[in-house]
Nucleic acid binder design. Structure first.
Length: 742
DNA sequence: TCTCTCACTTC
DNA sequence: TGAAGTGAGAG
C-alpha cells in the first residue's frame, strides 16, 4: 500500500499549485507559471508510505488515517462513511442551504503564551519528537454549525535567519539552513461540524516537534495534487531546524473530507505570541524556569516539592556553604570573598521558597554587575507581569480578556526577549543568563499596534526598541521579529484603528509579513485562471462525489471564488489591476468574506495574494522571504486562499505597501483608497476589499522593511526611541543595546 | 550543539 | 501500573 499512489479521484492536476506559498515566492511564481515543481521545496524524502502509515501514533486520529490510507489503497475516494461507502453524487451535487460563516479564533492560555513570548520562547525539539509547551489551543466561533470543517496546524519558518543565544539574548547568527520538509497536522477530530468545533477548545497538544529529518511520522497526501504531493505531507511531527525561529499557524478549512483539502479555501490564523525558536537544549534559563513552573510534567524540577530539583538545590546550597566557609578561612575577607558572598546571597535568595531557584547554575551568575543592573531594570518592568503570573498562567484565556489585553504584540512590541530581565526572582533563576534574553536580535521595536498600543507598551520594551535599532544596524538585513501584531482576534472590530504603522521599527515587520509566507497566495497561483476554471468545473462534481454528505458550500464556494479570482487576477498583473473594484468585491462576497474595515475579515484571498505576489517579488531581493505575516493580527484569518489562482505579475511590494501605509494611518477606508490608487496596489485592492483591516497591518509592517521607506523607518525609530527615552527614565539603568533588527 | 540517560511527573 | 512527557546533566 502506498499513500503516494495517484489519487483516482482527482484528475491530473498539472495546473494545480501548492496552496501554501513557498518561502521563495519569486521562484515559485516562476515555477508555477511554467508548470514546474516549485524548486524551493526541498525534495521531500518522505518515509516509504508503507507499514508505518498504519502505525501512526495516536495523534492522527484513526478515522483520518483510515480515510487517507483507504483512499490511497483502494483508489476509491473516501467519504465520511468510509472508503467503501457508496458514493452519492446526486446528493452531493444538490444545492444545499449554505450558511455563511465568519470564523473567529481565540488563542487559549494567551497570558501564558505572552509570558513565554516576551522572553523569547524556546521549544525543545528532539529526535523522537517533543510536544509544544505551552500547548497550542484555540477556541473557535462563528462557524456554520452544520457545515463540516477540517482544522489543521502547521509551523513555518518565521524568518530567514539562524539564531544563537549569546550574552543572554538571541541574536542572528547567519542565514537560515535549508528548510525542512513541510508537514501539516490535521486535528484528529477532523472533519467535524462547526458546532462540534465550537463546543470545545481545540487543542493541538499531540503535535510534536522534531529535528529528525528522517522522521517517519510524515505521509504523503492521498492525492497527487501537484501542489501538495511532495511539497507538504501530513503527520504528527513537524520537522524543524534547531536555532531557527518558527511561527505556528492554525487553519480552518470548510470541507467534509480530507481529499478536498487541496482544493479548499484555507482561513489561516497567526498568533504572534506563539512564535518560538526551536532548540535542542534550552538556552534561556528564564524560559526553562517558566516551563518548569507551568508544565505539569516538569513538576519534579520545581523549587517546591520533593523533586530532584529540590534535592539538588539543597545539595548545592550545602556545598556552597562549605565552599564559602572554606574560602573565607583560606583567603580571608577579601573582595573576592565579598563577591563570592554576594553571589551566594543571591543564590540563597533564589533558593528561598518564595523565589525560584536556579540551583547550581546560579553560580554562573555570580551576580555580575551587568546582570545585576539589568535585573533591576528588568524587575521593574516585569514586576507587574510577575505579580499576575500566577493568576494568568494556567488559564485559558477567555476571548474578551484576551482581546482587551491586547495581543502580546500589542502590549509588547518585542517578540523575543525584549523584556528586561528579571526581577529578583528572575535574577535568581536567570542563572547564567544575566542580562537575560530580553533583546532578541529579531526583536523589533516596532510597534505596529493600534493607537492605543503605544500607550500600553511597557516601559522596558521601549528601551528594547532602541537597542533593537542599534542591533538592526549591526545586523542589516535581519528583521526583527516583532510581534507586532495586532491581535486580531476576533476582534475584528477590535482592531484598534488603523494599524499604525507607527511604531514600526525599521526592520519591522514588513517583510515578515509577506515574504513568501506559505499561506499567501502566491502570484503563481493566480496564474491558473482558465486552467483552474476548467479544472474546477471538472472537479466540482468529482469532489462532490467524493464527499458523500457535502456540506455544500465549500466546493461551490471555493470554486466560484477561485474562478473569480482567476478571472480577476487575470493572466497578468496588468489585467488583474484592471479588474473593477466592485467586481472584486463581488468575488469576495462570493466567498463570504466580509468587507468591513479594519478588524473585519480580510479580503485576503486576493488581497493577500496580490500582496503576497508583491512580497514575493520583493522577497527575491530580500533576505526575508520566509517571513509570514508575523505582524498581522492573529485573530482573523491571515489568509484565505484557494489553491488555484492566476499568476499575477508581482508589483513591488514595498511600493505597494509604502503607498498604502500613509493611508492606513489615516484610517481603514483611507487605506483602502490609497491602495486602490496605488498602481502597485491595484491588484491588492482588486483582490479584496477587506484588505483594510488585517492587511493594513501587514502593509504597515511590510513598509517598514522596505528600503524605500528608510526615512519612514528612521522616523519611526526616532519616535520609538523618544518614547523609549521617556520610558527608560523609569528604568534604573540604561538599556543595553538589544537584539539586532533589520 | 546535540544526544542520550536519568529521575521525576502526569495521566 | 505503565506509558509517556519533563528538564538536567554528562558526554
Amino acid at each position: 500500500m502506498s499513500l503516494s499512489m495517484r489519487d483516482p479521484v482527482i484528475p491530473g492536476t498539472s495546473m494545480a499549485y501548492h496552496p501554501f506559498l513557498p518561502h521563495r515566492a519569486p521562484d515559485f511564481a516562476m515555477s508555477a507559471v511554467l508548470g514546474h515543481q516549485p524548486p524551493f521545496f526541498p525534495a521531500l524524502t518522505l518515509p516509504p508510505n508503507g507499514a508505518t502509515a498504519l502505525s501512526l501514533p495516536g495523534a492522527l486520529a484513526k478515522p483520518i488515517m483510515d480515510q487517507l490510507v483507504g483512499a490511497a489503497e483502494t483508489g476509491i475516494p473516501f467519504s465520511p462513511l468510509g472508503p467503501q461507502a457508496p458514493l452519492r453524487p446526486l446528493k452531493a451535487m444538490e444545492p444545499e442551504e449554505e450558511v455563511e460563516d465568519d470564523p473567529k479564533v481565540h488563542l487559549e492560555a494567551k497570558e501564558l503564551w505572552d509570558q513565554f513570548h516576551k522572553r523569547g520562547t524556546e521549544m525543545v525539539i528532539t529526535k523522537s519528537g517533543r510536544r509544544m509547551f505551552p500547548p497550542f489551543k484555540v477556541r473557535c466561533s462563528g462557524l456554520d454549525k452544520k457545515a463540516k470543517y477540517i482544522l489543521l496546524m502547521d509551523i513555518i519558518a518565521a524568518d530567514d535567519c539562524r539564531y544563537k543565544f549569546h550574552n543572554s539574548r538571541w541574536m542572528v547568527a547567519g542565514k537560515a539552513d535549508p528548510e525542512m520538509p513541510k508537514r501539516m497536522y490535521i486535528h484528529p477530530d477532523s472533519p467535524a461540524t462547526g458546532e462540534q468545533w465550537m463546543s470545545k477548545v481545540v487543542t493541538f497538544h499531540k503535535l510534536k516537534l522534531t529535528n529528525n529529518i528522517s522522521d517517519k511520522h510524515g505521509f504523503n497526501w492521498p492525492s497527487d495534487h501537484a501542489a501538495w504531493q511532495g511539497n507538504y505531507s501530513f503527520g504528527t511531527q513537524t520537522i524543524l531546524n534547531s536555532m531557527h525561529k518558527y511561527q505556528p499557524r492554525f487553519h480552518i478549512v470548510r470541507a467534509n473530507d480530507i481529499l478536498k483539502l487541496p482544493y479548499s479555501t484555507f482561513r489561516t490564523y497567526l498568533f504572534p505570541e506563539t512564535e518560538f525558536i526551536a532548540v535542542t537544549a534550552y538556552q534561556n534559563d528564564k524560559i526553562t524556569q517558566l516551563k518548569i513552573d507551568n508544565n505539569p510534567f516538569a513538576k519534579g524540577f520545581r523549587d517546591t516539592g520533593n523533586g530532584r530539583r529540590e534535592k539538588r538545590k539543597q545539595l548545592t546550597l550545602q556545598s556552597m556553604r562549605v565552599f564559602d566557609e572554606r574560602h573565607k578561612k583560606e583567603n580571608g575577607t577579601s573582595d573576592e570573598s565579598s563577591s563570592e558572598h554576594a553571589t551566594f546571597s543571591c543564590f540563597a535568595q533564589a533558593s528561598s521558597p518564595a523565589v525560584s531557584t536556579v540551583g547550581t547554575s546560579n553560580l554562573k551568575d555570580l551576580c555580575p554587575s551587568e546582570a545585576e543592573s539589568d535585573t533591576e531594570a528588568e524587575s521593574k518592568e516585569e514586576h507587574v507581569h510577575e505579580a499576575c503570573d500566577a493568576a494568568k498562567i494556567s488559564t485559558t484565556t477567555s476571548e474578551e480578556p484576551s482581546r482587551d489585553k491586547g495581543s502580546p504584540a500589542v502590549l509588547k512590541p518585542h517578540l523575543f526577549g525584549a523584556e528586561p530581565s528579571g526581577r529578583a526572582r528572575d535574577n535568581a533563576r536567570a542563572d547564567k543568563a544575566s542580562p537575560d534574553s530580553r533583546h532578541s536580535p529579531a526583536t523589533i521595536s516596532s510597534s505596529t499596534r493600534g493607537p492605543g498600543a503605544e500607550e500600553r507598551r511597557s516601559p522596558g520594551r521601549e528601551g528594547a526598541a532602541v537597542a533593537k535599532a542599534e542591533e538592526a544596524r549591526a545586523l542589516p538585513g535581519k528583521e526583527a521579529f516583532a510581534p507586532l501584531s495586532v491581535h486580531s482576534d476576533a476582534a475584528a472590530a477590535h482592531l484598534q484603528g488603523p494599524l499604525p504603522g507607527l511604531g514600526f521599527a525599521p526592520g519591522l515587520a514588513g517583510q515578515q509579513f509577506f515574504n513568501g509566507h506559505p499561506l499567501f497566495l502566491h502570484p503563481g497561483q493566480f496564474a491558473m485562471g482558465g486552467a483552474f476554471s476548467s479544472m474546477a468545473a471538472g472537479m466540482g462534481p468529482l469532489l462532490a462525489t467524493v464527499s458523500g454528505a457535502s456540506s455544500g458550500g465549500v466546493s461551490g464556494l471555493d470554486s466560484t471564488a477561485m474562478a473569480s479570482a482567476a478571472a480577476a487576477q487575470g493572466l497578468s498583473g496588468a489585467s488583474a489591476a484592471t479588474i473593477p473594484f466592485h467586481l472584486q468585491q463581488h468575488v469576495l462576497a462570493s466567498q463570504g468574506l466580509a468587507m468591513s474595515p479594519f478588524g473585519s475579515l480580510f479580503p485576503y484571498p486576493y488581497t493577500y495574494m496580490a500582496a503576497a505576489a508583491a512580497a514575493s517579488s520583493a522577497a527575491a531581493s530580500s533576505s526575508m522571504h520566509r517571513h509570514p505575516f508575523l505582524s498581522l493580527n492573529s485573530m482573523r484569518p491571515r489568509l484565505r486562499y484557494s489553491p488555484y489562482s492566476i499568476p499575477v505579475p508581482v508589483p513591488d511590494s514595498s511600493s505597494l505597501l509604502s503607498t498604502a501605509l500613509p493611508a492606513m494611518a489615516a484610517g481603514p477606508l483611507d487605506a483602502k483608497a490609497a491602495l486602490a490608487v496605488s498602481p502597485a496596489s491595484v491588484a491588492a485592492v482588486d483582490s479584496g476589499s477587506e484588505l483594510n483591516s488585517r492587511s493594513s497591518t501587514l502593509s504597515s509592517s511590510s513598509v517598514s522593511l522596505s528600503p524605500k521607506l528608510c526615512s519612514e523607518k528612521e522616523a519611526a525609530t526616532s519616535e520609538l526611541q523618544s518614547i523609549q527615552r521617556l520610558v527608560s527614565g523609569l528604568e534604573a539603568k540604561p538599556e543595553r543595546s538589544r537584539s539586532e533588527s533589520p
